[in-house]
Design a protein around this nucleic acid. Structure first.
Length: 223
DNA sequence: TCTTGATCATTC
DNA sequence: GAATGATCAAGA
């Protein structure tokens, strides 16, 4: 599948898959459908990348659609269209937290333009029967960006003070910080409150389900 | 029921 | 270990 040439083309392409099951989509590309996602957590996202013609090489540190600057996120939703999970944004720069402000941050770059593809993923629905929903192309409104910026600055202020160990997922209205590693024993370099290098758990920014839920709800109310 | 903290596969 | 893609599952 060739990369889409414009954001509009990407959106049109994505919406043509609305109503398809993941089984049908997998068939089209000759993919096997896992019985459950316990050991295939990124499967849905990779399938949609394939179907939509993501230009990025696997695991490359680039947008999924580099030419048009769009990030792809699949988002599991319940029967009311509410997200069942938070959304990973990017890792937290624990080793060099002084580099940039929100405007130049990795988190903001990731969120400048996101194609959200809702996946109807009720617990009783098998993976191959999950349904692709109507994709939306989201760019943060001024209000949304203010919320995100405030959360991000709050988190980074704590980290710059060397208090990364104190950060807890309850903080942040829209953007939270949670562990992100292979296991709870994973370690990466951080800084303590005396400015000394320490080994600490890797963490990442996530969008709360309440925040992405409002994005989805607003689009589907306005059409 | 919802959220937080933990975890899984794969590539480089 | 760090990056990609996320979901799991126990406890609040």
């Amino acid at each position: 599948v060739k990369p889409p040439e414009s954001r509009k083309a990407l959106l049109v392409r994505a919406r043509r898959f609305a109503g398809w099951t993941l089984g049908e989509l997998a068939d089209r590309y000759g993919w096997d459908v896992p019985v459950d996602l316990r050991r295939h957590k990124g499967w849905t996202g990779r399938l949609l990348e394939e179907a939509l013609g993501s230009s990025a090489e696997p695991n490359a540190k680039k947008p999924d659609f580099e030419e048009i600057g769009v990030e792809l996120k699949t988002i599991p939703v319940d029967g009311q269209g509410r997200p069942r999970e938070s959304t990973f944004v990017c890792s937290v720069p624990l080793a060099e937290p002084d580099e940039v402000d929100w405007e130049e941050s990795g988190a903001r770059q990731k969120l400048l333009a996101v194609l959200f593809v809702p996946i109807l993923a009720e617990p009783e629905r098998s993976v191959d029967q999950r349904l692709v929903g109507t994709a939306i192309l989201w760019t943060p409104s001024e209000e949304e960006e203010q919320v995100l910026a405030t959360d991000w600055r709050g988190h980074m202020e704590v980290i710059r003070a060397g208090l990364v160990e104190e950060i807890c997922a309850r903080e942040g209205v829209a953007l939270q910080v949670r562990p992100k590693g292979a296991t709870a024993r994973s370690r990466t370099w951080g800084v303590d409150d005396r400015g000394e290098a320490i080994l600490t758990q890797p963490r990442a920014f996530y969008l709360r389900a309440s925040f992405t839920g409002e994005i989805l709800a607003r689009h589907f109310l306005q059409g």
